[in-house]
Design a binder for these strands. Structure first.
Lengths: 137, 137
DNA sequence: TCCCAAATCGTAATCATTCCTATTTACAAA
DNA sequence: TTTGTAAATAGGAATGATTACGATTTGGGA
């Protein structure tokens, strides 16, 4: 999702487009991978000294709710990234830099056959490791 | 993994087989699904009044380290279950009762082809929903 | 049985996240 | 452009899971 798309989505849903919100989305737009609330706070702190946890977490959840960010949990901490809205896919996640690579393979069609009487609500398929760039370093 | 196997593994690795440890494994043996530290404490509390968090968490990590338990993270809380050691597989996890169903489908062979220069270290494939038993209730 | 490293207790500390009240601000309507 | 108001934010306390630590107890080998 493009930065401008994300900002427009906030407007479209009737939420205010504050400077902080725009900068938050800018951060994720530049990051292009999973980042934590802490990462975001560190990014915002110089410009918005004393920014409230409340503001950060509330907006992260808002962005997740309206589909502007997507979230996953890595070693006990929530991580966020800008939404990939175009089609269903999964991610390789680099444990060093948090950047992701799309994986277009999803085995759910096959899995559903094996779970006949089960009510499936969600699934998670993630691959972890080190990306080529971080292997160099 | 059988309860006795698990207890023997503790001995084999040179750790002491205390009554608390046996009861902890008994809990997971009966549970046959994912449980939290809190669940375990509730189970142990009547018999061992005032059992220490330290004891519970230390042993959970020990059991994970020596491969007697396996772990996953569900909505911000670590969950543990007795290890499935026989072969590689994944799980459907019931969000009501925590019980699991083995899924023998794993798409990693195919995925590896798409990640040529990536150093893959781990992967997670989990399906969430409600099991047939919990759908009745 | 005795000894001692391992295990446990009791409790405080930590860390991410959530909650609360007072204050400020975006923006729709006049 | 000004104003009214609901939404957004600040500042900081509270929560909940987990980890840390010094003092004490205990399993199991010698």
């Amino acid at each position: 999702m493009e930065l401008n798309e994300a900002i427009n989505e906030i407007k479209k849903q009737g939420y205010k487009t504050t400077a902080k919100r725009k900068d938050m989305l800018q951060f994720f737009d530049e990051a292009d991978g999973y980042r934590t609330a802490k990462d975001l706070i560190n990014y915002l702190e110089p410009k918005y000294e004393g920014i409230s946890f409340d503001t950060v977490y509330r907006n992260l959840h808002l962005f997740d709710d309206i589909g502007v960010l997507e979230t996953t949990e890595l070693n006990g901490e929530k991580h966020f990234r800008i939404s990939c809205t175009h089609h269903h896919h999964h991610h390789f996640i680099c444990k060093d830099c948090g950047k992701t690579k799309e994986i277009d393979i999803c085995p759910m069609d096959e899995v559903l056959k094996a779970l006949d009487n089960y009510a499936i609500e969600d699934h998670k398929f993630e691959i972890y490791g080190v990306c080529p760039v971080c292997q160099e370093a």
